[in-house]
Design a protein around this nucleic acid. Structure first.
Length: 852
RNA sequence: GCGGAUGUGGUGAAAUUGGUAGACACGCUAGAUUUAGGAUCUAGUGCUUCACGGCGUGUGGGUUCGAGUCCCUCCAUCCGCACCA
């Protein structure tokens, strides 16, 4: 065989590994460039050809940037805690660590086969105690912090305690669940437990009794982003709402900054929209309505306070705490029955029966704060307990859901905006003047919103408010294979395990199931205690370790902190991040959150982890389905590499189509790129497969071909359009083959140009051409515009916009002369049919269009 | 329902600011070489027509000398969110 890829690839892969060719410099004067792939979970199935797609793209950019003289950081690691290894352990008894190590070995072998330029000395594994020591450490920093809304940043709990000591809670503007206010004296009188309970409501990592998504099949709670259509994302098991004491992350404190931050990072619009949607900001007002003949008040949130005069009734969520208290005797039976009905409906049912209107009258009335009229209070399950205050002022003229409810139960629908037509449905127009609304009459919607809020505030019954849909993230998992939460309990209080005791290592246990009493697996450990006190038995979720791994890579030494100060300062954050869009509301939000927190705490110089994100598409199987063991349609990269070589695989994956698009794998067409590489090889060799290059000067056509390629390929890498870059190489090689070009001055730069895409063959040819060391150290070819200049231009000549014939003319021929030449041409005469042209458009160098 | 994305040959797909639609490949057809197969090379390949030509970028309209590209309308597919007040 002429082009012996297997021998070549083996040789260069071991050379790179021995020479540490791709190690990032520690102390470099060069400009840095950090290219990162989302690290994989090492599953037992190994890699299929879809996985390396993004890795290949990022590897091309990394190698390209090195040629351009950047100090490139391009690491890889493993998100190695997680459910599958643990499920396997439950079934077989094999320790998840063993399973994970085996899987990692497979991944590493497969990755190495493809020839990536990773700096493997910086590898991370989230399940490594030396790594999760710092995951636990960050958890403790969160545990020991609260959010100061005035400073708009996280501060330490120590500072909060000293504020409480000096002035109590009165002046504080903190992000908290606590509704208790107290003076400094009251604070000082509290016992330790009372103080601890209050502080817990401020901590950014906190323990609370709350409704969580419990998945009985997995035996653990799940975060919102781990649930798809009411079922667990992993395994598709049913999920139920359950009240449990759980650790959570106060990500809601960062809602506004997570939203604002999107404007300064380069993610796709689609992904930014998903995050905006998930954060779910809405502006409006919270207003309190008095309940008639009672002390109670009902607080509602509305985005349309301007329509308050259209509020003809109120609706509470069936779970609203006031429902039981305010229901009248006559109605209480019906109310109870409705509550029971609402509770019995699963999330799934509720979701699928969105259109069904149901509800019940409580028998109680609220007092409209401006008209003083009594308006009936209803309950209905279209009002969600978890959003806003769990209660709404129903404005049926402007809100379709309220309208439907009013129609069904025969409630009033008073219009409040000029020209509103409410006969067929709600009319939520925002143009027109407000009517029937006392002091708001005649105002525009925008002005009425402002005015109504200020009047509400004057009256002291409410205030302008911004609401977010984002919920705090549940952080406990009742599982074994995750980071232990470094907290122990003493006298009913959660205490941090001291930092110098970290890592808190996962204990060995005999079985990986929950205990008979339903406690998490860690409760099986023989001595799971700290100084005689029990340690928390739940572990951290998968996203903990992946929320900060980008920083660990920065530090080669790993002696000081989660990463050394100098390395954090030099590498800053990721310039280019490659990964799937499925992490939009999970990993990509959480790591932004942790980065902002670490920034607030003074460890980072930036509060965004990723400057730019590229979402690669999925590679589907040739039958158009997802590649999966289940369908038996998986293509293994090992097989492709064995048959065609890694360089072919790399080129082919890029050639398949635009990186960000999903596209099916088509093994047949891989021949095309393989053929291209063999043609490329033959350019450098004679018929006896000996390297044979000419030192003659290159002619115009050869230079033109090369420089066209340099320009196109560079532009395409910059714009992540790798598929067209590959075709540019094909065009260039086809042209050089036609020209029978074997000139060194053309083929040397071409080889460097190709090396980011097909590094093995390029290394081999470069070394055969006499270059010492790796081709990756050679500078990138310089593009010279002059070589693209043509003396002649082939003008397409159109009549009425339709191309009729081509005409070759000197490139510098002036406009009027082009017109003249074209018109006098015999072909033009034929199309003119003797008539005079109405108009002739000449775009120099581009086109001639004749209007007849 | 809301938001985002995508619609181009038999297939994967190209097409800078509006300027030759289908580059580059796969596949297919014919030929050369070969004992044969594979490999390689040459020519052809959007549809239609004997041909001149006509028609063609999801649909319908518009702007323009000229539209895959810009504007409006509708349709389809995929993704995300989904009673969010």
């Amino acid at each position: 065989m002429d082009y012996n890829f297997s021998e070549i690839e083996k040789r260069w892969q071991s050379y790179w590994s021995e020479q540490k060719t791709f190690a990032a410099d520690e102390n470099s004067q060069k400009e840095k460039f950090y290219v990162l792939d989302m690290f994989p979970y090492p599953s037992g199935a190994g890699l299929h050809v879809g996985h390396p797609l993004g890795y290949i793209a990022s590897d091309i950019v990394s190698r390209y940037k090195r040629h351009l003289g950047y100090n490139v950081l391009h690491p890889m690691g493993y998100d190695s805690f997680g459910l599958p290894a643990e499920q396997y352990a439950i079934q077989t008894g094999q320790h998840p660590r063993i399973t994970t190590e085996n899987n990692i070995a497979t991944y590493r072998r497969q990755l190495d086969l493809i020839g990536f330029s990773y700096d493997w000395d910086r590898e991370v594994k989230t399940s490594d105690p030396e790594y999760y020591k710092w995951t636990q450490w960050i958890f403790l920093q969160l545990f020991n912090s609260w959010y100061d809304k005035d400073a708009d940043k996280a501060r330490s709990i120590e500072e909060l305690i000293s504020i409480f000591d000096k002035e109590g809670s009165s002046k504080l503007n903190a992000h908290t669940d606590s509704e208790i206010s107290f003076t400094a004296a009251e604070w000082q009188e509290m016992d330790e437990k009372e103080q601890a309970d209050i502080l817990m409501d401020y901590r950014l990592a906190y323990l609370s009794d709350s409704f969580v998504n419990w998945c009985p099949a997995l035996g653990t709670v799940l975060a919102n982003d781990e649930i798809k259509d009411g079922k667990s994302e992993r395994g598709g098991h049913p999920v139920e709402r359950k009240k449990m004491k759980q650790w959570s992350m106060r990500i809601t404190a960062y809602a506004e900054r997570l939203l604002q931050g999107l404007d300064k990072i380069d993610f796709s619009d689609a992904l930014k929209e998903i995050q905006r949607n998930w954060i779910g900001k809405s502006e409006g007002a919270s207003i309190r309505f008095k309940v008639a003949d009672r002390e109670d008040e009902i607080e509602v949130f509305t985005t349309r306070p301007d329509t308050i005069f259209g509020a003809s009734f109120m609706v509470l969520a069936p779970e609203h705490p006031l429902v039981d208290e305010i229901s009248s005797k006559e109605q209480s039976k019906k109310v109870k029955a409705y509550q029971k009905y609402a509770a019995s409906r699963s999330e799934r049912e509720r979701m699928s029966e969105v259109k069904t209107v149901s509800g019940e009258f409580t028998g109680a009335y609220a007092i409209h704060p401006f008209t003083n009229e009594a308006i009936p209070i209803w309950i209905g399950d279209y009002v969600l307990a978890g959003y806003g205050t769990g209660a709404v002022m129903a404005v049926p003229s402007g809100d379709q859901r309220d309208w439907g409810f009013a129609k069904k139960f025969g409630l009033e629908i008073p219009p409040v905006i000029e020209g509103q037509d409410v006969s067929e449905g709600a009319d939520d127009r925002k143009d027109g003047k407000i009517v029937n609304s006392d002091f708001l009459n005649g105002l525009s919607v925008q002005d009425a919103i402002k005015k109504s809020i200020s009047v509400v505030e004057e009256k002291g019954i409410g205030k302008g408010k911004i609401n977010y849909r984002l919920r705090d993230a549940v952080f406990s998992r009742q599982r074994y294979w995750g980071e232990p939460i470094p907290i122990y309990f003493k006298d009913g209080m959660a205490k941090a395990i001291p930092e110098n005791e970290l890592p808190l290592r996962l204990p060995e246990i005999d079985e990986y199931k929950p205990t008979e009493t339903g406690e998490p697996p860690l409760a099986r450990a023989r001595d799971w205690s700290f100084e005689g006190n029990p340690i928390e038995t739940s572990t951290m979720p998968g996203w903990a370790g992946s929320s900060w791994y980008l920083f660990r890579y920065m530090d080669l030494e790993r002696k000081n902190g989660f990463a050394s100060e100098e390395s954090l300062k030099y590498w800053e954050n990721v310039d280019l991040y490659f990964g799937g869009a499925e992490h939009a509301t999970g990993h990509l939000l959480y790591s932004r959150f942790w980065t902002k927190f670490l920034f607030d705490s003074g460890y980072l110089s930036t509060d965004e982890p990723f400057k730019k994100l590229i979402n690669q598409g999925m590679i589907l199987a040739s039958d158009g389905q997802k590649m999966s063991k289940r369908y038996g349609n998986v293509v293994n990269p090992d097989d492709i590499v064995a048959q065609y070589g890694a360089d072919t695989l790399r080129l082919f994956e890029m050639f398949l189509g635009p990186l960000e698009q999903s596209k099916p794998w088509d093994t047949d067409s891989i021949e095309g790129v393989h053929r291209f590489l063999r043609k490329f090889w033959r350019l450098y060799h004679n018929d006896q497969n000996e390297l044979e290059l000419s030192d003659e000067a290159a002619d115009k056509k050869e230079l033109r071909s090369l420089h066209k390629c340099i320009k196109k390929v560079s532009e395409d890498i910059e714009s992540f359009s790798f598929n067209t870059a590959v075709s540019a190489f094909m065009i260039c090689v086809n042209e050089l083959q036609d020209l029978k070009c074997n000139k060194r001055s053309i083929l040397e730069p071409l080889c460097i140009l190709l090396s980011p895409f097909a590094p093995h063959i390029s290394e081999e040819l470069s070394s055969k051409m006499g270059h010492e060391g790796s081709i990756s150290k050679l500078p990138y070819p310089k593009f010279n515009e002059a070589h693209l200049k043509q003396d002649e231009v082939k003008y397409p000549v159109s009549f009425n916009g339709k191309m009729r014939f081509m005409l070759e003319l000197p490139a510098d021929m002036p406009k009027d002369q082009v017109e003249e030449t074209v018109l006098s041409h015999e072909n033009a005469q034929k199309w003119l049919e003797g008539k005079a042209p109405k108009k002739v458009i000449v775009v120099p160098g581009k086109i001639v269009n004749i209007v007849v």
